[in-house]
Design a protein around this nucleic acid. Structure first.
Lengths: 143, 143
DNA sequence: GTACTTGCAAAGATTTTGCTTCCAA
DNA sequence: TTGGAAGCAAAATCTTTGCAAGTAC
């Protein structure tokens, strides 16, 4: 998903592309890790010191509402905050190491099959799915 | 999992069985739905009006630490609270309807296979796993 | 008796709301 | 121009912490 298309996505839904939204979207899409609202705000302030934290929350709520970002908890490793990532073309599992805190992502066709099974067997129309596992990663498991 | 065994579980780990803990455990195990800390507290107060909310948070943290309850978010349908359920013998998916708010549970061997795949392919030792899906349930999907 | 738990009060962390001003279309 | 969006301040929600008093073992 490109920056342009996400912007167009918003515009096509009748939303205004303010420079604040453009900046926040760029940061989310360019982030190498999962950001929570405050982390996102701090990065955004580097570019635009007047950008308010409330705008971050409102923008995230809007992106979530339109399904453009996914909201994660990452097993509450660091309290109750929520983390955000640009919605990927393919869903993936998040693995959170309880020891070192590393977050890995894992894609699997089994995950896709599981979703299909739920949709068919329960006639449940899935809009968002989240799989998070807590445990010990390769580096930490034997220590 | 019986009340007794959960109590024994705690005792065997050197924890004290206070009447507050006993009451909270009974409520969690007997609950027909997923309770958040405050809902649990309200039920507990019916039995013991002096039981403090802080004790609920501390007890939940302790049960979570020892892997005796699972903590859920249920797709944040109603804000950022956390919900708790006695750990089941078999993991299950939670399906949250975005329209009516109903929570369904779904067990699947595919889920078990997915866990196995993660453990093998990533050499990741899973301790807790959570699958939550948001979408439209059978009753709401066509409306 | 002693260490672990609880209750109480207060603080901390995260997110939301009301309202005025601003600006994208 | 005009309705949607941002900024600011304040509040609401959820959870944690410090410490004195209580209690399970």
């Amino acid at each position: 998903m490109q920056t342009v298309s996400l912007e167009q996505e918003l515009v096509s839904r009748g939303l205004r592309m303010t420079h604040q939204r453009r900046l926040l979207i760029q940061i989310i899409q360019g982030a190498e890790s999962h950001l929570d609202a405050v982390a996102l705000w701090e990065r955004a302030r580097g570019q635009d010191p007047t950008l308010n934290k409330v705008t971050v929350y409102r923008t995230l709520a809007m992106l979530k509402k339109y399904g453009l970002v996914d909201e994660l908890d990452l097993m509450h490793l660091k309290g109750g905050k929520h983390y955000y990532e640009a919605r990927a073309s393919r869903d993936h599992v998040h693995l959170a190491c309880l020891k070192c805190g590393r977050i890995q992502e894992f894609e699997s066709s089994l995950f896709e099959k599981l979703k299909g099974q739920i949709e068919r067997q329960r006639r449940f129309n899935i809009k968002v799915v989240r799989v998070e596992a807590g445990g010990y990663c390769e580096n930490c498991r034997d220590r």
